[in-house]
């Protein structure tokens, strides 16, 4: 299942949260060789202190982690601006309420291989992107900006992701890094669903049985 974890829920999912930071250390520090702050076996930076949204792919009990991505509005402080504004001035300077940045996207290949042997890493990333597109649409986001490695472009193409590369640079890790903007729209969503053969929503907002609206209606 694909869910968002926002600051009011961080304490509700401690296992998942810890696994997220551990996975990021394995992927970004160990595999990609990025210069990211590592503390023990966790990778966590200053932006994690700014109450970001985590889009998480997890098991139904919300303790097994398959993948994650961090989402932040460009109206607030962003990693892309702070880290890449000289390298990618056109992307890093984008600011609008409907433009969000996605960073630290990663998947746990072992966990996926164990529980979903039919899903290869390419498809896993594609499903993450489909869930991201659904989540963004649901919340009035029309554009995502993100950095990614060049080899992701093949996966994007196959999955129907519409990305416009706005810059590319060396020197951040073992591979060059690209920066681009992703269109979020009904059209892209439908293309992705048909290319990936997925016919139902992956992402769902959590709607509790007892909600503010329901309680007010009950009082009436």
């Amino acid at each position: 299942m694909f869910v968002t974890i926002q600051a009011h829920e961080y304490n509700k999912y401690p296992v998942l949260m810890e696994k997220m930071f551990k996975l990021r250390k394995r992927v970004f520090a160990d595999q990609l060789g990025w210069d990211v702050p590592v503390n023990g076996d966790c990778e966590r930076d200053e932006y994690d202190a700014l109450k970001p949204v985590y889009l998480v792919w997890c098991g139904p009990d919300r303790t097994t982690l398959y993948g994650m991505m961090r989402l932040m509005p460009t109206t607030g402080p962003t990693l892309l601006y702070d880290v890449f504004r000289r390298t990618f001035p056109d992307t890093a300077n984008l600011v609008a309420p409907g433009i969000w940045e996605g960073t630290r996207m990663c998947i746990d290949e072992q966990a996926i291989a164990a529980d979903h042997p039919d899903i290869d890493p390419g498809r896993a990333f594609s499903l993450m992107f489909l869930a991201l597109c659904e989540c963004a649409m649901e919340h009035g986001i029309h554009t995502m900006i993100s950095n990614y490695e060049p080899q992701m472009k093949r996966i994007y193409r196959r999955a129907g992701v519409e990305v416009n590369e706005l810059g590319r640079a060396d020197g951040y890790g073992k591979l060059p890094v690209c920066c681009g903007e992703f269109e979020v729209s009904q059209r892209v969503l439908e293309t992705m669903r048909s290319k990936l053969g997925v016919d139902m929503p992956l992402y769902r907002r959590t709607v509790p049985e007892r909600s503010v609206t329901a309680e007010i209606l009950r009082a009436a």
Partner: peptide, 24 residues
């Protein structure tokens, strides 16, 4: 605490909040 826009049907009220909602 949240960052994404939300509908009030997504918010689960605490016991303390119920009285306020009835009043509302």
């Amino acid at each position: 605490l949240r960052s994404l826009p939300f509908d009030w049907s997504e918010i689960e009220p605490s016991e303390h909040a119920i009285a306020m909602l009835i009043d509302f």
